[in-house]
């Protein structure tokens, strides 16, 4: 069991309990974080799961692969260094306490 905090566009924070091995997208969808809709079910096809990983957590993240990077570059106008697709981040023990910033949905 891991604690994950989503910071919503209105700056409200929601902390939820996640399962190890689940993706960050699934954690968000299971907890009805509306801005992360995960329309393609996590197969890296839709970018409806865009989020920003809090800077403090950068070191604990695996780098994005080419597919994810291309999708992000195409989808997001204001892409930032910490932009990620939540469906490509699989949670492990190291991620307990992770803070994720959720932008307004672009879709």
């Amino acid at each position: 069991m891991l604690n994950i905090t989503f910071v919503l566009p209105d700056k409200n924070e929601i902390t939820v309990v996640a399962n190890e091995g689940d993706s960050l997208m699934q954690t968000a969808v299971d907890n009805d974080i509306e801005q992360i809709s995960g329309d393609c079910g996590g197969c890296c096809s839709c970018a409806t799961c865009h989020c920003f990983i809090d800077d403090k957590w950068k070191a604990k993240m695996m780098a994005a692969d080419d597919m994810e990077t291309e999708l992000l570059e195409g989808a997001i106008d204001n892409m930032q260094e910490n932009s990620r697709l939540a469906c490509q981040i699989f949670l492990n023990k190291e991620h307990d306490g992770l803070v994720v910033h959720v932008p307004e949905s672009s879709w």
Partner: peptide, 11 residues
């Protein structure tokens, strides 16, 4: 296999 073009076009 050209996800970036898909995303830009969809926008």
């Amino acid at each position: 296999n050209q996800p970036k073009s898909f995303m830009i076009s969809r926008k």
